[in-house]
Simulated scan of single mutants.
Amino acid sequence: MKHKLSIVKIGGNIIEDPKGLTHLLGLFSKLDGYKILVHGGGKKATEIGNKLGIEAKMINGRRITDAQSLDVAIMVYGGLVSKKITAQLQALECNALGLSGADANAIHAHKRPVKEVDFGWVGDVDEVNSRGITKLLLAGFTPVFCALTHDGKGQLLNTNADTIASELSIGLSAEFETTLYYCFEKKGVLRDVEDENSVIQHINSKTYETLLADGIIADGMLPKMHNCFHALQNNVKQVCIGDSDMLLQTTSNFTTLTL
C-alpha cells in the first residue's frame, strides 16, 4: 500500500498576506502523511524589481524573463520568499527544506523554444528526480520548492509554479498516493466570478468541457485547469482547488477534480 503524499501549491495573494500565509502554513504543518509545498512569488519579484529599476515585462498575462528579471526571480523566489516560509514552518515543528529545481537535481527543464513570443529564461519541465525527492521525504524533511528549475548545464530557469506542482505530483505518483492542492484566495472554481459562494464542488472531464464551452472557465483559470487534468491523466489520485481552509479536510466547500 502506497503512503499518502499531499502537494500544496500556494498562490501569490496568499504569499503577500502575512496573516493568510501564517494561517495556511499552520494548516499545512498539520497535514497527515508526507507533504511538499510549492510557491512562486511573482508579485514580490515585481515589487523588488521596480525598486531596482528592473521593470516586469508581460505579454498576454505571461511574464517575460530576461537576464535581469531572472536574477530578481532567483533572489526573491529562492531567497526571500523561500527562507521566510521555511523559517515559519520550522517554528511550527515542520522540518522544512527550501529547494529550487537545481538542488539535488530535483527538477530538470529546458529553455522554452522561441515561437511567436520569446519568453526568455523560462523553463519547461523535462523530468522530476522522484528518487531523490523520495529520499528527502522518507528522511523526515518537508521540501519547499520555489518556481525555479535548471537545465543541467548551469542555467537556472523561471518556471510556472502551478506546472512545477503538477509535475512533482506526477513524478512522485509511482511511489505515493498523491493529492495535489492548489490554494489561492477563492473558495474554489466559481460558477459566477461575482459570487464568492458559487463554488463548483466537483468537476470531471465531461463537465469541464461544458464549463469551457459556456465560458465559465476562462482566462487565468485555463492554464491552472490544464495542469490539473494533466496531473489526473498521469496517475495523480485527486486534485483540489480552493482557499486554505480546504486543508482542514473537514469542509467540502472547495472544488475537487477527477477524471
Rank of each mutant, 00 (worst) to 15 (best):
M225L: 14
S6N: 10
V122Y: 01
H150D: 10
G79E: 04
I107V: 11
K44Y: 09
R62K: 15
L24N: 00
D192Y: 13
G40F: 04
V193K: 15
I170D: 03
L52S: 11
H150C: 10
F176T: 01
K135N: 15
V189W: 00
K153T: 15
Q249T: 03
L99G: 00
T258F: 06
I10E: 01
I59V: 15
E47Y: 10
K153R: 15
S169R: 03
L257Y: 01
T134M: 13
S205T: 15
S205W: 12
Q88I: 12
T159I: 13
C94W: 01
A67H: 12
S6R: 04
L156P: 03
T250E: 13
G53V: 10
F184R: 01
V128I: 14
I216H: 00
L180Y: 02
T86F: 08
T22S: 15
K186M: 07
G154C: 07
V72Y: 05
E185F: 02
I36T: 06
P143Y: 05
N60A: 15
L97F: 09
T65D: 09
C228I: 04
R62W: 12
L172M: 12
F176D: 05
H110F: 09
L257K: 00
D118I: 01
G154D: 09
F254E: 00
I164T: 11
N253S: 05
H110M: 11
V76R: 03
A56H: 09
A104N: 10
Y77Q: 04
T159F: 10
K187S: 09
T210Q: 12
G140N: 04
V144K: 00
R191H: 09
I170W: 05
D195I: 07
G132F: 11
V72N: 04
K30R: 14
G98M: 00
H202E: 11
Y181K: 00
G20A: 08
K57M: 13
E127M: 12
V239H: 00
L248Y: 06
N235T: 09
T134D: 15
L248T: 08
T255H: 01
E16V: 09
E127Q: 13
L211M: 11
T179S: 11
G61P: 10
G123V: 03
E196A: 14
K2P: 02
T255Y: 02
T65F: 07
E116S: 12
L248I: 06
H3C: 13
Y181G: 02
S130D: 11
G26E: 08
L257H: 00
H110W: 08
G42A: 13
T134L: 09
K9L: 07
H23E: 14
D17I: 06
I200Q: 04
S205D: 11
V72Q: 07
A91P: 05
G26S: 12
D124S: 06
L97P: 07
A45F: 12
D126R: 13
D219P: 05
M58P: 03
R62F: 14
G49A: 09
L222F: 03
F28D: 08
E177N: 13
S198I: 11
A96P: 01
